[in-house]
């Protein structure tokens, strides 16, 4: 009896790991979609409305889903308090705290880091340029993330099930 429970548990755990790992690819894709949405809303507020960043971020945090909303809200609070020297500093500090909630790759993080370095530090024309640069980069990564997700989600799910089944057979 104990052996059966043990075998079933191993099978479930292995399947779960496969599903969970596959899910990370989907999460990355969703996060990139949220970032793209955020960039578009922010661009609208900054380029067309000249809304100051703390106010624009505050509005943006209500329109995004977690974890992006948490990240933006945290930067908003820092900017309102004025306890950071620049937006980039605020973004880095907050991202470090929330990093484990994100599934982004290094190339996604680099695009966002470059974006935050220049955000708010030039006139409207300059801001327009950095927005197009970031949006283009994120769009490219999103396309790539879509392809990776398409391949890997199923792969890791099946791998989890197969591995579970294989271990089960060996034990039996």
């Amino acid at each position: 009896m104990l052996k059966i429970i043990f075998i079933i548990s191993i099978f479930i755990i292995s399947t779960y790991i496969g599903f969970a790992y596959g899910e990370t690819f989907r999460r990355r894709q969703e996060e990139l979609k949220e970032i793209l949405k955020g960039l578009t809303i922010l661009e609208n507020d900054i380029v067309y409305g000249a809304t100051p960043l703390p106010e624009a971020f505050d509005k943006l945090s209500d329109k995004l889903c977690e974890p992006s909303s948490l990240f933006i809200k945290a930067i908003t609070n820092r900017l309102i308090k004025g306890d950071v020297e620049s937006v980039y500093e605020g973004a880095i500090k907050e991202f470090t705290l929330l990093e484990n909630k994100f599934y982004l790759y290094d190339e996604d993080k680099k695009i966002m880091a470059d974006f935050f370095k220049s955000l708010g530090e030039s006139g409207v024309y300059g801001q327009e340029k950095i927005f197009s640069l970031a949006i283009e980069g994120i769009k490219m990564n999103l396309r790539e993330a879509g392809e990776i997700a398409k391949k890997n989600i199923k792969l890791y799910r099946y791998l989890g099930i197969c591995l579970g089944a294989m271990i089960t057979i060996f034990i039996i």
Partner: peptide, 19 residues
Amino acid sequence: EELKSMIQKISNYSLYAYE
């Protein structure tokens, strides 16, 4: 650097809003 940081805070981290 201190003056740059002041300008950031004066402009609410948004130089574009004060062009």
